[in-house]
Amino acid sequence: MFAIILNISAVLIVLSSLIGLYRVVKGPSNPDRVITLDMIGVNLISLVAVITLILNTTAFLEVILLLSILSFIGTVSFSKFITKGVVIERKRD
């Protein structure tokens, strides 16, 4: 029973990532694309967690930390690019 629920949730996470991919390609404005890329990152993290439960191993726990750090830095840099126009400033006044 628990294995069936895990498989269904993995399929649903993949489907929601595909719908998000449509929004990344089609999205009318840039903030839509940034929010959807962040959502795809969270979906990847939860997919790795579900696969960890299915395979009953602890080998992928570093992947979760790594993906969350990279997704955080990506979202922060995209937001700064949208609001300020530059990513890394030479001198902040």
């Binding site: 830095i73 890394i88 902040r92």
Partner: peptide, 14 residues
């Protein structure tokens, strides 16, 4: 990645 986050939050001179 950590130093890139520092560059994003502060500026290059700091």
């Amino acid at each position: 990645a950590a130093i890139t986050l520092l560059l994003l939050a502060f500026d290059f001179e700091t």
